[in-house]
Design a protein around this nucleic acid. Structure first.
Lengths: 230, 230
DNA sequence: TCCTTATCCATACGTTGTATGATTATGTAC
DNA sequence: GTACATAATCATACAACGTATGGATAAGGA
């Protein structure tokens, strides 16, 4: 792991130089490919064919690298705004889907992204405009708009967290769940037991897409009711 | 850091012995007090007045310690079931509040807990009974019950994640937000700008409790509408 | 031309998780 | 009892990590 053939000292004018962006891009590549644990300063430096300590000229420490990654993901987030040509609830749903898609692009980073508050709040405010606009069109007051937007975002965050923790696109809840439920003394969870039986063996193939849509519908319906009450 | 006065070898019959539970309890204490980064195997061993390598007799590695902590938090989760004496939506809300409270008890662990899928799915199924019961009483079909429960849980997870990432009980969105919004070219986020102005300087003191309640109301309203459509 | 500053490299230190193996006691089989 | 597999602990050691320190080299303004 010796950087053979590397001259020490500041690079000459024409030569390639390191940059914060280059570092973060390389880091994102490593994380996407091999997961967040594979991201070490030494590994990152090796990928960039650079001495580990060179990184510290562009970023103060590893935490800053991780924060930068979160920032990168959010910066790449663009919510389409179909404008007023569609009903407000459809507008809201489209924005929500785009937000989820953005988070899904780097599943191994989801946890880091969602827990980095500063990255979130810095970019999010502007990015969220389509949310606010749709909720405004729905007829909500300013405070209600913020509350509804937060609720929706919280849902998407929680959903994405769950989604990111599972590899497959769809996963069968049924077989796993059935065995577990059957193993219970039925009186500990009577409703659950009954529901599972009602479903039969076939019923419960859960897939994330329809789960997300179901949540969106519930939320928009609830928001519509709030608007009507005004 | 030498365990002076400690005999080597297996402890005598009467003597205190290490156990998985004792280790996890000590670990939880460290995390609650000083955060998850303070939890190292050596620190944990020191707290228990034990050699670091002794831990590995009861847990295979550090990841298992963290997973055990997540398990512990979920195991301590008990959702009250007021039964059918209250309307179903109130029953649902109470269970949801209890779930949030449970996650709030160890804020520095929230991230670990929420991202540990296995711990979640193992215990959650039974714990969730009050959710299922309330949704059943609302008149939903089996599949809808699962979808609604998942949506609600996703919301709580996302909310708790945000809540755990912030120290204070309440935090002022207003001043921070105002400056940031004002710094924008207003046309980039016109609705946001207008809304913030409508709110005035006073309006937007966001606190988590009312944010959570607002989300709960939106969700139960949406669920009620789904039930009515059947 | 000189000097400050930017950029990169080499070395080194303390900390981490844990592999390996020695040490001592327990509990069972005979 | 005596032998022995097993359990529980400790001691030592190692590779990998983040990063502090300081030296090398070149850039760019004075």
């Amino acid at each position: 792991m010796v950087n053979v053939g590397k001259r020490s000292g500041r690079p000459r004018a024409g030569e390639e130089r390191l940059s914060r962006d280059a570092i973060l891009t390389a880091a994102l590549g490593i994380v996407d490919d091999e997961g967040i644990d594979a991201l070490t300063m030494r590994r990152l430096a090796a990928t960039l064919k650079v001495n580990p300590m060179s990184l510290y000229h562009h970023l103060p420490n590893k935490a800053a690298v991780l924060a930068g990654l979160a920032e990168l993901v959010f910066a790449g987030l663009e919510l389409p705004d179909p404008g007023d040509s569609v009903p407000w609830d459809e507008q809201l749903k489209q924005a929500a889907r785009a937000y989820r898609d953005g988070l899904r692009q780097h599943p191994k980073l989801a946890l880091q992204v969602l827990s980095d508050t500063s990255a979130v709040s810095d970019v999010v405010v502007v990015t969220m405009e389509p949310f606010y606009r749709a909720l405004d069109r729905a007829g909500l007051g300013p405070r209600q708009i913020f509350e509804a937007a937060n609720t929706l975002i919280d849902f998407i965050h929680g959903f994405s967290l769950g989604e990111a923790s599972v590899r497959a696109e769809t996963f069968e809840l049924a077989p796993d769940l059935l065995t577990r439920v059957r193993a219970l003394p039925a009186h500990k969870a009577p409703t659950l037991t009954r529901i599972v039986n009602d479903l039969g063996a076939d019923g419960l193939a859960y897939d994330f897409d329809s789960g997300f849509e179901s949540g969106l519908s519930t939320l928009t319906t609830g928001i519509a009711a709030t608007a009507r009450r005004r």
